[in-house]
């Protein structure tokens, strides 16, 4: 899971180093798009609720349980969403029962939808999804998956004014996190920096990014 670092207030870039991808618990990650204040609050509550359940019951929630809980939190924001303060999360986690990763997306009313293979949310998500469609393939390694994410974010930033690209001047890179059976890991800045650098370098030769074979 990866997210760019831009926050906007109207046409102004409000912050260049905001974080939109979070550790939900040891085996899941959550990202937000939309109204930042509400999104951050929902993430905070979600994190506490997962930990609270874990401590009370002595076991972690099932991934479905986490997905449902997040749906309820988003549904609780429906009133605010109707007034324009929409927030939409993305949940990805390792399902211990199925021994594999799963992705859940949401609508503003709290509808929960399981996605296959990949998904994107936010203002630049249409462009990111186009890139993901061409770059994703089954059996990607963790390293390659991170590269695919950064490529997709680059394409989103290329065409969407509210998505920030990798900032090589200020050394501000996307937040990239992986969740495996061993737990949540946020990639350190050096690692993402190297990936971002290679993506930017590649774009000098091919501004549209890697080309897919036509036939």
């Amino acid at each position: 899971m990866a997210g760019d670092r831009r926050a906007t207030a109207g046409n102004v870039i409000a912050q260049r180093d905001v974080e939109k991808v979070f550790r939900a618990d040891e085996l899941s990650a959550v990202a937000i798009a939309g109204t930042a204040g509400i999104g951050l609050e929902i993430v905070r509550l979600f994190q506490v609720e997962l930990e609270h359940y874990e401590k009370l019951e002595g076991r972690t929630l099932s991934l479905e349980g986490k997905a449902n809980r997040l749906a309820a939190l988003i549904r609780g924001n429906l009133g605010m969403a109707m007034q324009g303060l929409v927030v939409v999360p993305l949940l990805a986690g390792f399902d211990e029962e199925r021994a594999g990763g799963r992705i859940f997306s949401y609508d503003a009313a709290g509808g929960r939808y399981e996605e296959r293979d990949f998904h994107s949310i936010g203002s630049g998500s249409v462009f990111a999804r186009g890139a993901l469609k061409k770059l994703w393939r089954p059996g990607l390694s963790a390293e390659d998956a991170a590269l695919v994410c950064v490529q997709a974010l680059y394409d989103a930033a290329d065409d969407d004014s509210a998505t920030g690209g990798p900032d090589l001047i200020r050394r501000i890179f996307p937040v990239v996190a992986e969740v495996t059976a061993d737990g949540f890991r946020r990639l350190p800045d050096e690692e993402v920096g190297a990936v971002a650098q290679s993506v930017v370098d590649g774009r000098f030769d091919s501004p549209g990014g890697p080309t897919a074979p036509l036939r």
């Binding site: 905070r44 509550l45 506490v48 930990e51 609270h52 401590k55 009370l56």
Partner: peptide, 13 residues
């Protein structure tokens, strides 16, 4: 114990 966990999580939040 349950009371303690509740106290801690509520305060921390």
């Amino acid at each position: 114990r349950l009371g303690g966990v509740r106290y801690a999580d509520v305060n921390g939040y």
